[in-house]
Design a protein around this nucleic acid. Structure first.
Lengths: 310, 310
DNA sequence: TATTAATATAAGCAAAACTTATGGATAAGC
DNA sequence: GCTTATCCATAAGTTTTGCTTATATTAATA
């Protein structure tokens, strides 16, 4: 065996840096630090006694040798991936790691998971609460349910549903605060999640050409929407929430929606998984069930289900 | 990038074990322990969640998946090796690491090296004294000059010369010890290297149908032949040495060869190098010079030079 | 049945792969 | 021309991986 193959571990960083001609992008993609990439490539250059990159301003250009090697490495990696794919189809039974945000997990998914377990007793679903976007590719996470558009185009992603976001509060607050029109909410305690982005109260009021006064003091910032909803359930103010999280509470009369006014487009929930995962059969079973459950729960209408393949 | 490529370092052991269907042979070939191979393959099986080997008596059979993966890994490694070859032709100038035993290094090679340096000032030769056989493939050693047949058929090897081995002593000892026939040597101090193999005094005497008496006490064991030759130069006994090491000393009259009797076949000196080395141009220059020097020094006759390609 | 050969496993050590902190070089903006 | 931002390089420290050693287990052979 070729002794140079002792150093193949170095080639991963090389391939990523060669692809982007940027050590930091390589580092980002590999979920390691730029310094690690720099040192690994230096090691490879020493081992092979070949200059693979030259600095060009703030980027790294491949040398002719670097280009040659990259072609071979890319081909070799493709061959290996194909090999892994061929040997790695796992049976349907086993563990499945599912990640999603706290609110969706605790309010929607976990309360329904007994249905999945009852139907597929051989698949043990573990819920991992996280909002980290990159963890899917470099961890044991099998399925991610994320708010917003995911940016990792290396994995399969699709829109599960786009959820309307609107104001909700406890029914008694409508009476006590005399809420009749949107402007009346300016007199209420506004509950808002950290970093709401488009789904902020400022944006919601602007739909009615209203602005929040600068001196507004009765404001509650919460770290998760779940917290916000719990606060509102207890009669504490009013918050903006996406439909799936409050649907049951509204239907049971614990919360009301004072106005039909909603932020458009709504909150996108995306489904992501690695199509090359050895647990693909298991992932398929879970995601199929998930999609059906969304339809059964009237979060997704059957006609919207056609969107699933994105 | 495929996250499974994080684990490519494990594939080297896998490929070796797959080729031989034997962990110990893989270990031997890779110059590591069997336990390391076993653990690396176990790790790979865990990471891929695929059984790659099954025990079959005292060997390890590849599973169907193992066979599939091996094909891909072998192809990928071939691709990588080709890539390395393409980028790795080094220029002729630079460092060259040469390993040989102490005696040949100090007595023959080093005293002549000035000629090489004068002729090729851009090549810096480093002499590394070692008798270790496997180091050539898994180190920075470029050229090895070894006594005996090398066993590593993964590298280029050829016979440089076969050196007669005979008895030598200081001239005055012939007179003082009255050495007239082989049996007279039994009364002298016999100097012998550690582990002489075929080139032992016992073997030399047997050529004259003599045996060393069991009670012989005046015996000197030395760890290298160089030491032995130095002892003999100082008048201390008589030792068996190969021609190249004593040629100059005999020609200058410092040592004599009391008898034409020599052990047949003589001591084989082999030349070894890695034909895939990035320093092949440098290796070629050095080995060409070496061969010519052996001819110039009358160690090899010009007619024997045809043997060089082995 | 005892011995030998081969792999499996646990514990410990060494080497490799990282991270953090900081410096140097370059590009972009003012 | 200076400042700020971006990117890689390097040193030192930490963590993880890859080994080694020792021993256990399994299977073949005499």
């Amino acid at each position: 065996m070729d002794k140079r193959l002792r150093h193949i571990a170095l080639l991963r960083c090389f391939a990523a840096a060669a692809k982007y001609e940027s050590y930091s992008q390589a580092a980002q993609r590999l979920a390691i630090t730029q310094a690690a990439v720099s040192q690994q490539i230096r090691s490879l250059e020493e081992v092979l006694a070949v200059k693979l990159f030259v600095r060009h301003g703030r980027s790294m250009r491949l040398t002719p040798q670097g280009k040659t090697l990259y072609q071979h490495v890319d081909d070799a990696f493709t061959t290996l991936s194909a090999g892994f794919d061929k040997v790695q189809v796992e049976p349907a039974e086993g563990v499945l790691n599912v990640t999603t945000g706290l609110s969706f997990a605790s309010i929607w998914l976990v309360p329904k998971l007994w249905k999945f377990s009852a139907r597929y007793p051989d698949i043990k679903v573990k819920i991992i609460v996280s909002t980290e976007l990159e963890s899917l590719r470099y961890s044991d996470i099998d399925v991610a349910i994320r708010q917003g558009d995911a940016t990792d185009h290396r994995v399969h992603q699709e829109t599960l549903f786009i959820d309307p976001v609107f104001a909700v509060c406890a029914p008694q607050l409508v009476e006590t605060a005399r809420i009749a029109q949107p402007a009346d909410l300016l007199n209420c305690l506004l509950v808002e999640a950290e970093d709401p982005g488009r789904f902020s109260w400022a944006n919601w009021f602007s739909l009615s050409d209203l602005t929040i006064p600068r001196h507004k003091r009765d404001w509650l910032e919460v770290s998760t929407l779940e917290m916000g909803i719990n606060a509102v359930l207890a009669g504490q103010g009013i918050c903006l929430a996406s439909y799936c999280l409050v649907k049951d509470l509204i239907n049971s009369g614990l919360l009301v929606r004072p106005f039909p006014l909603q932020i458009e487009p709504g909150q996108r929930f995306s489904l992501l998984y690695d199509p090359n995962s050895p647990r693909k059969p298991r992932i398929d079973i879970f995601t199929d069930w998930l999609k059906q459950e969304l339809i059964d729960d009237c979060i997704v209408s059957p006609s919207d289900a056609g969107q699933f393949a994105r």
